[in-house]
Design a protein around this nucleic acid. Sequence first.
DNA 1: GTCTATAGTCGGATAGAC
DNA 2: GTCTATCCGACTATAGAC
Lengths: 224, 224
Amino acid sequence: MPGVDAIQAVNRGSQTRRRLLRAGLELFGQRDYDNVTTRQLADLAGANLAAIPYHFGTKQALYQAVAEDIVASIQPSTRAALLTAGRCADTPDAGAHRLLQALREVILAFSHEVVGVADARLRAGYILREQLRPSASFDVLYEGFMRELHSVMTRLHARLLGCPDEDPAMAFRCQCLIGQVLGFRVGREVLLRRLNRDTLDPRQIAEFVADTNVAALQREIGHA
Amino acid sequence: MPGVDAIQAVNRGSQTRRRLLRAGLELFGQRDYDNVTTRQLADLAGANLAAIPYHFGTKQALYQAVAEDIVASIQPSTRAALLTAGRCADTPDAGAHRLLQALREVILAFSHEVVGVADARLRAGYILREQLRPSASFDVLYEGFMRELHSVMTRLHARLLGCPDEDPAMAFRCQCLIGQVLGFRVGREVLLRRLNRDTLDPRQIAEFVADTNVAALQREIGHA
DNA sequence: GTCTATAGTCGGATAGAC
DNA sequence: GTCTATCCGACTATAGAC
Protein backbone atom coordinates (compact mmCIF):
# COMPACT_ATOMS: atom_id res chain seq x y z
CA MET A 1 0.00 0.00 0.00
CA PRO A 2 1.38 3.43 -0.90
CA GLY A 3 1.86 5.82 1.97
CA VAL A 4 0.33 9.28 2.19
CA ASP A 5 3.57 10.90 1.09
CA ALA A 6 3.76 8.81 -2.07
CA ILE A 7 0.16 9.65 -3.00
CA GLN A 8 0.79 13.36 -2.52
CA ALA A 9 3.91 13.11 -4.64
CA VAL A 10 1.91 11.44 -7.44
CA ASN A 11 -0.77 14.14 -7.27
CA ARG A 12 1.80 16.86 -7.38
CA GLY A 13 3.46 15.17 -10.32
CA SER A 14 0.29 14.80 -12.34
CA GLN A 15 -0.60 18.42 -11.69
CA THR A 16 2.78 19.54 -12.96
CA ARG A 17 2.19 17.36 -16.00
CA ARG A 18 -1.19 18.98 -16.60
CA ARG A 19 0.21 22.47 -16.19
CA LEU A 20 2.94 21.66 -18.70
CA LEU A 21 0.34 20.46 -21.21
CA ARG A 22 -1.62 23.65 -20.67
CA ALA A 23 1.50 25.74 -21.20
CA GLY A 24 2.21 23.69 -24.31
CA LEU A 25 -1.19 24.51 -25.82
CA GLU A 26 -0.76 28.17 -24.91
CA LEU A 27 2.69 28.51 -26.49
CA PHE A 28 2.59 26.01 -29.37
CA GLY A 29 -0.81 27.43 -30.29
CA GLN A 30 0.74 30.85 -30.80
CA ARG A 31 4.20 30.09 -32.05
CA ASP A 32 6.10 27.55 -34.06
CA TYR A 33 7.81 24.63 -32.34
CA ASP A 34 11.27 26.16 -32.53
CA ASN A 35 10.02 29.50 -31.38
CA VAL A 36 9.00 28.07 -28.05
CA THR A 37 11.73 27.27 -25.57
CA THR A 38 11.64 24.70 -22.81
CA ARG A 39 12.40 27.54 -20.42
CA GLN A 40 9.25 29.40 -21.47
CA LEU A 41 7.17 26.24 -21.14
CA ALA A 42 8.52 25.56 -17.66
CA ASP A 43 8.07 29.19 -16.55
CA LEU A 44 4.48 29.40 -17.78
CA ALA A 45 3.67 26.08 -16.10
CA GLY A 46 5.31 27.23 -12.88
CA ALA A 47 7.49 24.14 -13.11
CA ASN A 48 11.17 23.44 -13.20
CA LEU A 49 13.03 23.08 -16.47
CA ALA A 50 13.94 19.50 -15.64
CA ALA A 51 10.26 18.63 -15.21
CA ILE A 52 9.91 18.42 -19.00
CA PRO A 53 12.46 15.65 -19.54
CA TYR A 54 11.10 13.98 -16.43
CA HIS A 55 7.41 13.92 -17.42
CA PHE A 56 7.64 13.71 -21.20
CA GLY A 57 11.18 12.66 -22.05
CA THR A 58 11.78 15.34 -24.67
CA LYS A 59 10.36 18.66 -25.80
CA GLN A 60 9.11 16.88 -28.92
CA ALA A 61 7.14 14.38 -26.83
CA LEU A 62 5.47 17.21 -24.92
CA TYR A 63 4.55 18.76 -28.26
CA GLN A 64 2.86 15.54 -29.35
CA ALA A 65 1.08 15.11 -26.05
CA VAL A 66 -0.53 18.48 -26.72
CA ALA A 67 -1.98 17.10 -29.97
CA GLU A 68 -3.52 14.18 -28.10
CA ASP A 69 -4.91 16.62 -25.58
CA ILE A 70 -6.49 18.69 -28.35
CA VAL A 71 -8.26 15.65 -29.81
CA ALA A 72 -9.39 14.55 -26.37
CA SER A 73 -10.88 17.95 -25.61
CA ILE A 74 -13.14 18.22 -28.64
CA GLN A 75 -16.59 19.12 -27.39
CA PRO A 76 -18.97 16.22 -26.73
CA SER A 77 -21.59 18.26 -28.57
CA THR A 78 -19.42 18.20 -31.68
CA ARG A 79 -18.96 14.45 -31.43
CA ALA A 80 -22.70 14.12 -31.05
CA ALA A 81 -23.38 16.28 -34.11
CA LEU A 82 -21.01 14.15 -36.20
CA LEU A 83 -22.58 10.93 -34.96
CA THR A 84 -26.10 12.11 -35.67
CA ALA A 85 -25.15 13.39 -39.10
CA GLY A 86 -23.34 10.16 -39.93
CA ARG A 87 -26.41 8.12 -39.03
CA CYS A 88 -28.60 10.49 -41.00
CA ALA A 89 -26.40 10.08 -44.09
CA ASP A 90 -26.72 6.30 -43.70
CA THR A 91 -30.51 6.39 -43.47
CA PRO A 92 -31.76 5.61 -47.00
CA ASP A 93 -35.08 7.43 -46.66
CA ALA A 94 -33.76 10.56 -44.96
CA GLY A 95 -35.26 13.58 -46.71
CA ALA A 96 -33.39 16.63 -47.95
CA HIS A 97 -34.69 18.69 -45.07
CA ARG A 98 -33.25 16.32 -42.49
CA LEU A 99 -29.94 16.02 -44.33
CA LEU A 100 -29.63 19.81 -44.57
CA GLN A 101 -30.45 20.15 -40.90
CA ALA A 102 -27.72 17.64 -40.02
CA LEU A 103 -25.22 19.46 -42.24
CA ARG A 104 -26.13 22.73 -40.59
CA GLU A 105 -25.45 21.28 -37.15
CA VAL A 106 -22.08 19.90 -38.26
CA ILE A 107 -21.01 23.25 -39.71
CA LEU A 108 -22.10 25.05 -36.55
CA ALA A 109 -20.25 22.58 -34.32
CA PHE A 110 -17.09 22.70 -36.42
CA SER A 111 -17.16 26.50 -36.57
CA HIS A 112 -17.61 26.59 -32.84
CA GLU A 113 -14.52 24.43 -32.38
CA VAL A 114 -12.49 26.62 -34.74
CA VAL A 115 -13.61 30.12 -33.77
CA GLY A 116 -15.91 29.76 -30.77
CA VAL A 117 -14.71 27.75 -27.81
CA ALA A 118 -12.35 29.17 -25.20
CA ASP A 119 -9.10 27.79 -26.60
CA ALA A 120 -10.22 27.82 -30.24
CA ARG A 121 -7.51 30.25 -31.31
CA LEU A 122 -4.75 28.22 -29.71
CA ARG A 123 -6.00 24.85 -30.92
CA ALA A 124 -6.58 26.13 -34.44
CA GLY A 125 -3.12 27.65 -34.40
CA TYR A 126 -1.59 24.32 -33.48
CA ILE A 127 -3.60 22.45 -36.11
CA LEU A 128 -2.92 24.94 -38.89
CA ARG A 129 0.81 24.78 -38.24
CA GLU A 130 0.61 21.00 -38.39
CA GLN A 131 -1.16 21.24 -41.72
CA LEU A 132 1.50 23.52 -43.16
CA ARG A 133 4.30 21.29 -41.90
CA PRO A 134 2.98 17.89 -40.84
CA SER A 135 4.86 16.03 -38.14
CA ALA A 136 3.91 12.87 -36.26
CA SER A 137 1.21 14.92 -34.52
CA PHE A 138 -0.62 15.28 -37.80
CA ASP A 139 -1.66 11.63 -37.75
CA VAL A 140 -3.07 12.07 -34.27
CA LEU A 141 -5.16 15.03 -35.39
CA TYR A 142 -6.24 13.43 -38.65
CA GLU A 143 -7.32 10.11 -37.19
CA GLY A 144 -8.79 11.74 -34.11
CA PHE A 145 -11.02 14.23 -35.84
CA MET A 146 -10.44 15.37 -39.41
CA ARG A 147 -11.10 12.08 -41.10
CA GLU A 148 -14.54 11.72 -39.59
CA LEU A 149 -15.47 15.34 -40.19
CA HIS A 150 -14.52 15.06 -43.85
CA SER A 151 -16.22 11.70 -44.26
CA VAL A 152 -19.52 12.75 -42.72
CA MET A 153 -19.70 16.00 -44.66
CA THR A 154 -18.85 14.23 -47.90
CA ARG A 155 -21.59 11.65 -47.41
CA LEU A 156 -24.17 14.30 -46.57
CA HIS A 157 -23.33 16.15 -49.78
CA ALA A 158 -23.42 12.95 -51.79
CA ARG A 159 -26.89 12.13 -50.49
CA LEU A 160 -28.18 15.65 -51.03
CA LEU A 161 -26.92 15.85 -54.59
CA GLY A 162 -27.60 12.24 -55.50
CA CYS A 163 -23.97 11.42 -56.23
CA PRO A 164 -21.88 8.44 -55.12
CA ASP A 165 -19.84 8.94 -51.95
CA GLU A 166 -16.64 8.45 -53.89
CA ASP A 167 -17.33 11.25 -56.36
CA PRO A 168 -14.29 13.54 -56.04
CA ALA A 169 -16.55 16.55 -56.50
CA MET A 170 -18.13 15.76 -53.13
CA ALA A 171 -14.73 15.80 -51.42
CA PHE A 172 -13.95 19.07 -53.20
CA ARG A 173 -17.15 20.66 -51.98
CA CYS A 174 -16.40 19.49 -48.51
CA GLN A 175 -12.90 20.93 -48.70
CA CYS A 176 -14.36 24.27 -49.77
CA LEU A 177 -16.72 24.22 -46.83
CA ILE A 178 -13.96 23.54 -44.32
CA GLY A 179 -11.82 26.17 -46.00
CA GLN A 180 -14.53 28.77 -45.51
CA VAL A 181 -14.48 28.22 -41.76
CA LEU A 182 -10.70 28.10 -41.56
CA GLY A 183 -10.56 31.25 -43.68
CA PHE A 184 -12.04 33.21 -40.83
CA ARG A 185 -9.27 31.93 -38.60
CA VAL A 186 -6.35 32.26 -41.01
CA GLY A 187 -7.50 35.46 -42.68
CA ARG A 188 -8.77 37.03 -39.52
CA GLU A 189 -6.26 39.90 -39.65
CA VAL A 190 -7.18 40.80 -43.20
CA LEU A 191 -10.91 40.74 -42.49
CA LEU A 192 -10.48 42.90 -39.38
CA ARG A 193 -8.57 45.49 -41.39
CA ARG A 194 -11.18 45.46 -44.13
CA LEU A 195 -14.05 45.89 -41.69
CA ASN A 196 -12.10 48.41 -39.64
CA ARG A 197 -12.92 46.48 -36.50
CA ASP A 198 -10.94 44.81 -33.79
CA THR A 199 -13.17 41.87 -32.92
CA LEU A 200 -15.37 39.34 -34.69
CA ASP A 201 -18.37 37.60 -33.18
CA PRO A 202 -17.80 33.82 -33.33
CA ARG A 203 -21.50 33.04 -33.40
CA GLN A 204 -22.06 35.43 -36.25
CA ILE A 205 -19.32 33.69 -38.26
CA ALA A 206 -20.65 30.20 -37.50
CA GLU A 207 -24.20 31.11 -38.47
CA PHE A 208 -23.13 33.01 -41.53
CA VAL A 209 -21.21 30.06 -42.95
CA ALA A 210 -23.93 27.57 -41.99
CA ASP A 211 -26.78 29.67 -43.36
CA THR A 212 -25.20 30.67 -46.66
CA ASN A 213 -24.12 27.12 -47.46
CA VAL A 214 -27.40 25.50 -46.47
CA ALA A 215 -29.34 28.11 -48.43
CA ALA A 216 -27.15 27.61 -51.48
CA LEU A 217 -27.65 23.86 -51.34
CA GLN A 218 -31.38 24.31 -50.97
CA ARG A 219 -31.48 26.44 -54.10
CA GLU A 220 -29.25 23.99 -55.94
CA ILE A 221 -31.47 21.03 -55.09
CA GLY A 222 -34.66 22.90 -55.87
CA HIS A 223 -33.22 24.03 -59.17
CA ALA A 224 -32.01 20.60 -60.31
CA MET B 1 33.25 56.16 -65.27
CA PRO B 2 33.34 52.76 -63.60
CA GLY B 3 35.92 50.35 -64.93
CA VAL B 4 35.18 46.91 -66.35
CA ASP B 5 36.20 45.27 -63.09
CA ALA B 6 33.81 47.41 -61.07
CA ILE B 7 30.92 46.61 -63.41
CA GLN B 8 31.62 42.91 -63.21
CA ALA B 9 31.77 43.17 -59.43
CA VAL B 10 28.39 44.90 -59.36
CA ASN B 11 26.88 42.22 -61.61
CA ARG B 12 28.28 39.47 -59.47
CA GLY B 13 26.94 41.22 -56.39
CA SER B 14 23.45 41.67 -57.72
CA GLN B 15 23.38 38.06 -58.84
CA THR B 16 24.32 36.90 -55.35
CA ARG B 17 21.58 39.12 -54.04
CA ARG B 18 19.08 37.58 -56.42
CA ARG B 19 20.15 34.06 -55.54
CA LEU B 20 19.78 34.86 -51.85
CA LEU B 21 16.25 36.13 -52.46
CA ARG B 22 15.45 32.96 -54.36
CA ALA B 23 16.86 30.82 -51.54
CA GLY B 24 14.80 32.91 -49.11
CA LEU B 25 11.56 32.14 -50.97
CA GLU B 26 12.51 28.47 -51.16
CA LEU B 27 13.26 28.11 -47.45
CA PHE B 28 10.92 30.66 -45.81
CA GLY B 29 8.13 29.26 -47.97
CA GLN B 30 8.63 25.84 -46.44
CA ARG B 31 9.67 26.60 -42.92
CA ASP B 32 9.20 29.14 -40.20
CA TYR B 33 11.63 32.03 -39.84
CA ASP B 34 13.49 30.48 -36.93
CA ASN B 35 13.63 27.14 -38.64
CA VAL B 36 15.73 28.54 -41.44
CA THR B 37 19.35 29.32 -40.72
CA THR B 38 21.58 31.81 -42.46
CA ARG B 39 23.90 28.90 -43.26
CA GLN B 40 21.15 27.11 -45.17
CA LEU B 41 20.26 30.29 -47.03
CA ALA B 42 23.86 30.90 -47.98
CA ASP B 43 24.43 27.27 -48.98
CA LEU B 44 21.33 27.11 -51.17
CA ALA B 45 22.24 30.42 -52.81
CA GLY B 46 25.79 29.21 -53.39
CA ALA B 47 26.96 32.26 -51.48
CA ASN B 48 29.04 32.90 -48.45
CA LEU B 49 27.51 33.29 -45.00
CA ALA B 50 28.76 36.85 -44.76
CA ALA B 51 26.97 37.77 -47.99
CA ILE B 52 23.71 38.03 -46.06
CA PRO B 53 24.78 40.78 -43.67
CA TYR B 54 26.52 42.43 -46.60
CA HIS B 55 23.56 42.53 -49.00
CA PHE B 56 20.65 42.81 -46.61
CA GLY B 57 22.07 43.84 -43.25
CA THR B 58 20.29 41.17 -41.21
CA LYS B 59 18.50 37.88 -41.68
CA GLN B 60 15.26 39.70 -40.83
CA ALA B 61 15.82 42.19 -43.65
CA LEU B 62 16.32 39.36 -46.13
CA TYR B 63 13.07 37.84 -44.88
CA GLN B 64 11.24 41.10 -45.58
CA ALA B 65 12.86 41.50 -48.96
CA VAL B 66 11.32 38.15 -49.88
CA ALA B 67 7.86 39.58 -49.11
CA GLU B 68 8.51 42.50 -51.45
CA ASP B 69 9.68 40.06 -54.07
CA ILE B 70 6.48 38.04 -53.72
CA VAL B 71 4.31 41.10 -54.26
CA ALA B 72 6.45 42.19 -57.19
CA SER B 73 6.13 38.81 -58.88
CA ILE B 74 2.36 38.59 -58.89
CA GLN B 75 1.35 37.71 -62.42
CA PRO B 76 0.52 40.65 -64.71
CA SER B 77 -2.54 38.65 -65.76
CA THR B 78 -3.78 38.71 -62.17
CA ARG B 79 -3.22 42.46 -61.92
CA ALA B 80 -5.12 42.83 -65.18
CA ALA B 81 -8.04 40.72 -63.94
CA LEU B 82 -8.28 42.83 -60.78
CA LEU B 83 -8.14 46.05 -62.75
CA THR B 84 -10.83 44.93 -65.18
CA ALA B 85 -13.05 43.65 -62.40
CA GLY B 86 -12.60 46.87 -60.42
CA ARG B 87 -13.65 48.94 -63.42
CA CYS B 88 -16.56 46.64 -64.04
CA ALA B 89 -17.75 47.02 -60.44
CA ASP B 90 -17.56 50.81 -60.88
CA THR B 91 -19.61 50.78 -64.09
CA PRO B 92 -23.19 51.60 -63.01
CA ASP B 93 -24.90 49.83 -65.91
CA ALA B 94 -22.80 46.65 -65.87
CA GLY B 95 -25.15 43.68 -66.07
CA ALA B 96 -25.11 40.59 -63.87
CA HIS B 97 -23.57 38.55 -66.62
CA ARG B 98 -20.59 40.89 -66.97
CA LEU B 99 -20.13 41.14 -63.20
CA LEU B 100 -20.19 37.36 -62.85
CA GLN B 101 -17.73 37.01 -65.67
CA ALA B 102 -15.36 39.46 -63.97
CA LEU B 103 -15.71 37.62 -60.66
CA ARG B 104 -14.96 34.37 -62.38
CA GLU B 105 -11.76 35.77 -63.85
CA VAL B 106 -10.65 37.11 -60.48
CA ILE B 107 -11.25 33.76 -58.78
CA LEU B 108 -9.37 31.94 -61.52
CA ALA B 109 -6.45 34.37 -61.32
CA PHE B 110 -6.29 34.22 -57.54
CA SER B 111 -6.50 30.42 -57.52
CA HIS B 112 -3.75 30.31 -60.08
CA GLU B 113 -1.54 32.42 -57.83
CA VAL B 114 -2.28 30.21 -54.82
CA VAL B 115 -2.21 26.72 -56.31
CA GLY B 116 -1.15 27.07 -59.93
CA VAL B 117 1.99 29.06 -60.70
CA ALA B 118 5.44 27.58 -60.34
CA ASP B 119 6.23 28.93 -56.88
CA ALA B 120 2.65 28.93 -55.63
CA ARG B 121 3.34 26.50 -52.82
CA LEU B 122 6.28 28.49 -51.53
CA ARG B 123 4.61 31.88 -51.83
CA ALA B 124 1.42 30.63 -50.21
CA GLY B 125 3.47 29.07 -47.43
CA TYR B 126 5.17 32.39 -46.74
CA ILE B 127 1.89 34.30 -46.80
CA LEU B 128 0.02 31.80 -44.62
CA ARG B 129 2.75 31.94 -42.00
CA GLU B 130 2.55 35.72 -42.05
CA GLN B 131 -1.18 35.52 -41.52
CA LEU B 132 -0.79 33.23 -38.54
CA ARG B 133 1.91 35.40 -36.99
CA PRO B 134 2.00 38.81 -38.67
CA SER B 135 5.33 40.64 -38.75
CA ALA B 136 6.34 43.78 -40.60
CA SER B 137 6.11 41.76 -43.83
CA PHE B 138 2.37 41.44 -43.37
CA ASP B 139 1.87 45.11 -44.21
CA VAL B 140 3.84 44.66 -47.41
CA LEU B 141 1.66 41.74 -48.45
CA TYR B 142 -1.58 43.37 -47.38
CA GLU B 143 -0.99 46.69 -49.10
CA GLY B 144 0.60 45.04 -52.11
CA PHE B 145 -2.17 42.61 -52.91
CA MET B 146 -4.69 41.47 -50.34
CA ARG B 147 -6.40 44.80 -49.85
CA GLU B 148 -7.19 45.21 -53.53
CA LEU B 149 -8.28 41.59 -53.95
CA HIS B 150 -10.66 41.90 -51.03
CA SER B 151 -11.93 45.28 -52.13
CA VAL B 152 -12.64 44.26 -55.73
CA MET B 153 -14.38 41.02 -54.74
CA THR B 154 -16.47 42.82 -52.14
CA ARG B 155 -17.61 45.43 -54.62
CA LEU B 156 -18.51 42.81 -57.22
CA HIS B 157 -20.64 40.97 -54.67
CA ALA B 158 -22.27 44.19 -53.52
CA ARG B 159 -23.25 45.05 -57.07
CA LEU B 160 -24.49 41.56 -57.83
CA LEU B 161 -26.64 41.36 -54.71
CA GLY B 162 -27.73 44.99 -54.70
CA CYS B 163 -26.16 45.76 -51.33
CA PRO B 164 -23.99 48.70 -50.27
CA ASP B 165 -20.23 48.13 -50.49
CA GLU B 166 -19.90 48.61 -46.76
CA ASP B 167 -22.36 45.82 -45.89
CA PRO B 168 -20.33 43.50 -43.63
CA ALA B 169 -22.07 40.52 -45.23
CA MET B 170 -20.27 41.31 -48.49
CA ALA B 171 -16.88 41.20 -46.73
CA PHE B 172 -17.92 37.94 -45.08
CA ARG B 173 -18.83 36.37 -48.39
CA CYS B 174 -15.56 37.52 -49.84
CA GLN B 175 -13.68 36.03 -46.91
CA CYS B 176 -15.46 32.71 -47.48
CA LEU B 177 -14.47 32.77 -51.11
CA ILE B 178 -10.81 33.41 -50.35
CA GLY B 179 -10.95 30.75 -47.65
CA GLN B 180 -12.18 28.19 -50.15
CA VAL B 181 -9.12 28.70 -52.30
CA LEU B 182 -6.73 28.76 -49.36
CA GLY B 183 -8.42 25.64 -48.02
CA PHE B 184 -7.00 23.67 -50.91
CA ARG B 185 -3.56 24.88 -49.96
CA VAL B 186 -3.79 24.52 -46.18
CA GLY B 187 -5.86 21.37 -46.15
CA ARG B 188 -4.06 19.79 -49.05
CA GLU B 189 -2.73 16.90 -46.97
CA VAL B 190 -6.16 16.03 -45.63
CA LEU B 191 -7.77 16.12 -49.07
CA LEU B 192 -5.04 13.95 -50.57
CA ARG B 193 -5.57 11.35 -47.85
CA ARG B 194 -9.30 11.43 -48.36
CA LEU B 195 -9.04 11.03 -52.11
CA ASN B 196 -6.28 8.47 -51.75
CA ARG B 197 -4.20 10.37 -54.28
CA ASP B 198 -0.83 12.01 -54.24
CA THR B 199 -1.39 14.95 -56.54
CA LEU B 200 -4.07 17.53 -57.26
CA ASP B 201 -4.60 19.29 -60.56
CA PRO B 202 -4.34 23.06 -60.01
CA ARG B 203 -6.56 23.92 -62.96
CA GLN B 204 -9.23 21.56 -61.72
CA ILE B 205 -9.22 23.28 -58.33
CA ALA B 206 -9.33 26.77 -59.82
CA GLU B 207 -12.21 25.93 -62.12
CA PHE B 208 -14.10 24.04 -59.47
CA VAL B 209 -14.06 26.98 -57.07
CA ALA B 210 -14.84 29.49 -59.80
CA ASP B 211 -17.67 27.45 -61.31
CA THR B 212 -19.43 26.45 -58.10
CA ASN B 213 -19.38 29.99 -56.74
CA VAL B 214 -20.48 31.65 -59.96
CA ALA B 215 -23.27 29.09 -60.41
CA ALA B 216 -24.43 29.57 -56.82
CA LEU B 217 -24.54 33.33 -57.27
CA GLN B 218 -26.46 32.95 -60.50
CA ARG B 219 -29.09 30.83 -58.74
CA GLU B 220 -29.19 33.26 -55.84
CA ILE B 221 -29.79 36.25 -58.11
CA GLY B 222 -32.33 34.43 -60.20
CA HIS B 223 -34.15 33.31 -57.11
CA ALA B 224 -34.32 36.71 -55.41
C1' DG C 1 32.63 41.78 -53.03
C1' DT C 2 33.98 37.68 -50.94
C1' DC C 3 36.13 34.87 -47.69
C1' DT C 4 37.82 32.62 -42.90
C1' DA C 5 37.79 32.76 -38.20
C1' DT C 6 35.66 33.91 -34.15
C1' DA C 7 33.01 36.41 -30.69
C1' DG C 8 28.94 36.20 -28.07
C1' DT C 9 24.39 34.26 -27.15
C1' DC C 10 21.02 30.87 -26.26
C1' DG C 11 18.95 26.44 -26.75
C1' DG C 12 17.91 21.31 -25.03
C1' DA C 13 19.24 17.86 -22.13
C1' DT C 14 21.78 15.78 -18.12
C1' DA C 15 23.87 14.92 -13.36
C1' DG C 16 23.33 14.63 -8.88
C1' DA C 17 21.82 16.84 -4.30
C1' DC C 18 17.63 17.17 -1.75
C1' DG D 1 9.33 14.52 -7.92
C1' DT D 2 11.83 18.67 -7.88
C1' DC D 3 15.70 21.58 -7.95
C1' DT D 4 20.54 23.87 -9.29
C1' DA D 5 24.37 23.81 -12.00
C1' DT D 6 26.44 22.66 -16.12
C1' DC D 7 27.63 20.60 -20.59
C1' DC D 8 27.58 20.77 -25.39
C1' DG D 9 25.98 22.15 -29.67
C1' DA D 10 24.13 25.60 -32.94
C1' DC D 11 23.04 30.01 -34.23
C1' DT D 12 23.71 35.22 -35.93
C1' DA D 13 26.70 38.75 -36.72
C1' DT D 14 31.26 40.83 -36.94
C1' DA D 15 36.32 41.66 -37.83
C1' DG D 16 39.71 41.79 -40.83
C1' DA D 17 42.60 39.52 -44.61
C1' DC D 18 42.40 39.05 -49.53
